[in-house]
């Protein structure tokens, strides 16, 4: 078995809550309680879970934007767990992120071409207009889009700009945090296709986080199901979706309304199957 691109070993992350009493110690939130996973090169790995399950915290720790309380994170053979920022240059070049909110992920005061070129400038590469045009083209935007500001674009177009920025430093790993959750259905398909195509063309390793298992199933080969700071089930997406083994996964799968099931007569009480009570 080759060395995985991302290896997470028994990672925990505790946050202190603001003190509620002078006498008692500050309560802590256990955002991650011993998470382990491995992502192989070229794999499309999905992480599914509901709000507050710790999936965003996990992503940030993998991207070294947050630090684990304990455990170990190894990216491309380098242990990044306690590496200082100045030694993370390789990670900042090879791993890029796409975020959920197309409103807040682009600086409203910057032109699109400066947004896309930012990672290049930071990493000391010459940020040529040529490269920016190439990136705009790769995500299906016209070259003159570079002169405009984010608010002049629709949600789907802004997400394309985010993707162009992420691809600028030619990363090998792309992490997408709910990239289509805020988009209209008719635009969602375009962005999913774009991510899929780019991952294929550029041989990227993809880590795709979503609360929606049916999207993960469409995009990813393997999935980890998270609940309350833990991974409760991991496996090939088709298998997890068709025959979930953990009770939480079963509840999650049955709660997703789908068109074929609804047209076959499924009701809301069928969505609650697998729920305790």
């Amino acid at each position: 078995m080759p060395e995985p691109v991302i290896r997470v070993v028994d990672v925990t992350r505790d946050y202190p809550r603001p003190r509620t009493s002078l006498l008692k110690p500050a309560p802590t939130v256990h955002a991650l309680r011993g998470v382990s996973l491995e992502v192989q090169a070229g794999e499309r790995f999905g992480i599914v879970g509901e709000s507050g399950c710790g999936k965003s915290t996990l992503l940030r720790i993998i991207a070294a934007l947050d630090r684990a309380t304990s455990g170990q994170v190894v990216v491309e053979g380098t242990d990044i767990t306690r590496l200082p920022e100045r030694r993370l240059k390789f990670l900042r070049e090879n791993l890029q992120l796409v975020f959920q909110d197309p409103m807040s992920s682009l600086d409203p005061r910057m032109r699109v071409r400066d947004i896309i070129a930012e990672p290049l400038v930071v990493q000391g590469h010459p940020a040529s207009g040529e490269r920016v045009r190439e990136l705009l083209d790769a995500v299906g935007l016209s070259p003159d889009a570079g002169d405009r500001y984010p608010h002049q674009f629709s949600g789907g177009q802004r997400q394309r700009i985010s993707i162009a920025r992420a691809l600028a430093p030619r990363p090998r790993i792309l992490i997408a945090d709910e990239p289509v959750s805020a988009l209209d259905v008719s635009v969602r398909a375009q962005v999913l296709n774009l991510i899929s195509d780019l991952v294929d063309e550029l041989n990227l390793t993809l880590v795709f986080v979503s609360h929606d298992l049916s999207i993960i199933k469409h995009v990813c080969d393997r999935v980890a199901v998270m609940n309350a700071g833990e991974i409760v089930e991991t496996g090939p997406t088709g298998q997890v979706y068709a025959t979930p083994t953990h009770p939480y996964t079963r509840r999650l799968v049955s709660a997703i309304p789908t068109l074929p099931r609804a047209l076959a007569g499924a009701t809301t009480s069928d969505l609650l199957r697998g729920a305790p009570e």
Partner: peptide, 25 residues
């Protein structure tokens, strides 16, 4: 028709059928 096709994650293979363009403001 386009909306139904674009949201059908169940039966589509790698690529989803899409509606071109963006939703106007």
């Amino acid at each position: 028709q386009g909306l139904l096709a674009a949201s059908d994650l169940e039966s589509a293979d790698a690529r989803l059928p899409t509606i071109p363009g963006n939703v106007p403001a």
